[in-house]
Design a protein around this nucleic acid. Structure first.
Lengths: 255, 255
DNA sequence: AAGTGGTCTAGACCACAGT
DNA sequence: CTGTGGTCTAGACCACTTC
């Protein structure tokens, strides 16, 4: 008794579109539609093979595509599972003052400054592509490490139902978590824009830094499976404490 | 008459390491050793298959790995070619003032402020892991777009031989290009660290901005095939004109 | 026409998970 | 033990490029 609609479709073996790609898209649709949820196991490979009358190698090729984009992960002897979209994997690193023990315990603390209903102003309406004054939830918070305030964040998500603000949400106040907890839509993709800027007076007070301190201004937008924006945030990272690293060029497995 | 030393080695079919991985590493070594140079074509797949006594599918799996990391690219009907390592593919975008035509012609200009021999000071010696006072080349330049100075860069590469500074190099003053033109070592991998900061007085004059303008401070290190640093640069991107964008989550092919 | 990479098959054996 | 994914084979046909 399956309700995986797309899986009843057939593959066109005479199409110029490769079978493995057709199958990958089919499974992708089922995952995006929620017929397979994160953590759940996919049918075994030989199932797909016999059901669609194709070779197991072709099934593997399809699933491999989904592995590459991180939509599923396979475990030998167990099965292939739907992953959680990693929406917060742009890693800011805390600057590590030389000599300090990097494995030192970090005491991360989140202080909620406010959580309330907010009627979309012009900026937010534009960001989320919603009418003016649409009901939204607004979170304001400060993230501190070792009692030092480092990040100031304002997060907005489209209001959908009266959910109480759970404490568990505030342990992980990432935008994707807030969206997933408070709406019926799941967060699928995200976009971040980084700017270099200088603290405003308000931010300087909140972050306990002097005026003219440089900051990273990070705007994040989160989209559902139809690429409609469902959440938006603007974060201020202290520029004297955070940095961003990226690697380029050739590497195979190791780095 | 081939001098592809590694290709004379054999694969261990009884190893716990997959054959496709062994072959991928073998080809990788040949590419890193310069036995196959960027732009050159690899032997056809059936060559590898018969030479090593393995199936063509296994060869394809090996080459697929190299495709994924961007070390080679395959073209139907033509062959598989060695790629150039993309070391400068972190894209800064110019902020696009609303309403302005994005396809508008950009007039990019590079002004060389200096190119001279530089004896490594403490900072540089540490960055390049070389003795103090080692001979290096030092480039200072300003990148302008539409007559507006936007980037100020200081680039250092280990001095290897007396090459004249070619004009062609200055059309592409990327660190990887400078390294490849002036040294005998090829640039293979790179690392970038981004910081948010504020212009120094000197930078403010060069970039024609007021004091306290925010900037991205971008440190880049370039490594050879043994992961030894061979070039280092420190660039200042005007924070009021540049931004950085990244995407996360699920996507398959399209975005 | 000959050579290349792209796809696909119908098997096979293996290592590992959960009984 | 059975079931899973991981690897590998020895073919096959196709589309494309080059001559």
């Amino acid at each position: 008794m399956t309700n995986n609609i797309n899986q009843m479709k057939t593959l066109n073996k005479n199409s110029s579109i490769p079978v493995y790609y057709q199958l990958a898209k089919l499974i992708e649709k089922d995952i995006l539609a929620g017929n397979f949820k994160p953590g759940e196991v996919l049918p075994p490979e030989h199932d797909f093979a016999s059901r669609f009358g194709i070779s197991r190698m072709t099934v593997r090729r399809a699933i491999s595509e989904l592995n590459i984009v991180g939509m599923v992960y396979s475990e030998k002897g167990k099965g292939t599972f739907v992953a959680n979209p990693k929406l917060d994997d742009v890693e800011f690193e805390l600057d590590n003052p030389s000599g300090e023990n990097p494995s030192k315990e970090m005491n991360r603390e989140i202080k909620l400054l406010g959580a309330n209903i907010f009627r979309a102003d012009e900026t937010l309406a534009k960001k989320l592509i919603i009418p003016l004054k649409t009901k939204c939830l607004h979170f304001r918070l400060i993230v501190s490490v070792n009692n030092e305030p480092l990040i100031y964040e304002n997060k907005y998500i489209i209001f959908s139902k009266h959910n109480p603000i759970l404490e568990t949400e505030l342990n992980d106040p990432s935008l994707s978590n807030l969206v997933n907890s408070n709406g019926q839509l799941r967060a699928i993709t995200g976009k971040r824009v980084f700017r270099a800027s200088i603290v405003t007076e308000e931010e300087a007070v909140l972050l306990k830094v002097s005026i003219n301190t440089p900051v990273f201004l990070v705007e994040q937008t989160i989209y559902d499976h139809e690429k409609k924006p469902i959440g938006w945030s603007k974060s201020v990272y202290r520029g004297d404490r955070y940095r961003l690293t990226s690697y380029t060029g050739w590497c195979l497995g190791d780095f």
